[in-house]
């Protein structure tokens, strides 16, 4: 565990609490893509199967995994059941098959071992890299976002961004160890946030509303 990794994980936790706070206080999931949230459930469930195979890492690791699975399912419950009327599928139109198809094929080709668990693990890594696309697509379509929603995305982006210095740190402290699948997918994932962060820094953090140029 290094500082980059710890702050990254805390930022990931923060993003979930920000999202829950947004839904609970506004009693609405307006502006949130349920497709992205469903993809996160799939990401966590397929990646954390090692919870059940006895590959114990640490209490911290297991608690975080259980939290991510539980909270992502809870968010789906809020969006699909409790605040269902505030969920507008007509603007959440990114086609999930464009994500699920290619990531499944990638996982079958590029994995560390052709076993059920390893293919699912690689799938979860590729899937996480692009899981934010329906959300960003929705943002692009509506051209604006509530400030709290942009804080949610910023926390997620910081989490992903900090994994990169974490890998660099680990490369030098763990004898040149590198996990190419996670690193390549992670760089792609971080790159997807670049446009968002440009608007976030130049508008939201200056006190303006998040609005995309027409």
């Amino acid at each position: 565990m290094n500082l980059f990794r710890l702050v990254a994980d805390l930022s990931h936790l923060a993003s979930i609490f920000i999202l829950l706070h947004k839904i609970q206080t506004t009693r609405s999931c307006r502006g949130i893509s349920i497709k992205t949230q469903l993809l996160y459930v799939l990401v966590f469930v397929t990646r954390y199967l090692d919870l059940f195979t006895g590959d114990f890492v640490s209490i911290y690791n297991s608690v975080m995994k259980l939290f991510f699975i539980g909270s992502s399912c809870y968010i789906i419950y809020l969006m699909r059941i409790k605040y269902k009327p505030t969920n507008d599928p007509s603007i959440d139109t990114f086609r999930l098959e464009y994500i699920l198809g290619p990531t499944a094929v990638l996982a079958l080709i590029f994995n560390y071992k052709f076993t059920f668990l390893e293919v699912l693990w690689a799938f979860s890594i590729y899937l996480e890299a692009v899981a934010i696309l329906p959300q960003l697509f929705m943002l692009q379509r509506t051209g604006e976002a509530e400030t709290i929603t942009t804080h949610y995305l910023a926390a997620l982006g910081i989490y992903r961004g900090l994994y990169i210095p974490n890998w660099i740190y680990r490369y030098f402290t763990e004898g040149g160890a590198i996990d190419p699948i996670a690193v390549v997918a992670g760089i792609v994932q971080t790159a997807l946030y670049v446009d968002f962060f440009y608007v976030y820094f130049t508008k939201v953090l200056q006190g303006q509303k998040f609005e995309l140029p027409a």
């Binding site: 590959d55 890492v57 690791n61 680990r170 004898g175 590198i178 996990d179």
Partner: peptide, 10 residues
């Protein structure tokens, strides 16, 4: 390439 000793990333 040498893999990290354990897959501990979340």
């Amino acid at each position: 390439l040498e893999m990290p000793a354990e897959k501990d990333e979340l």
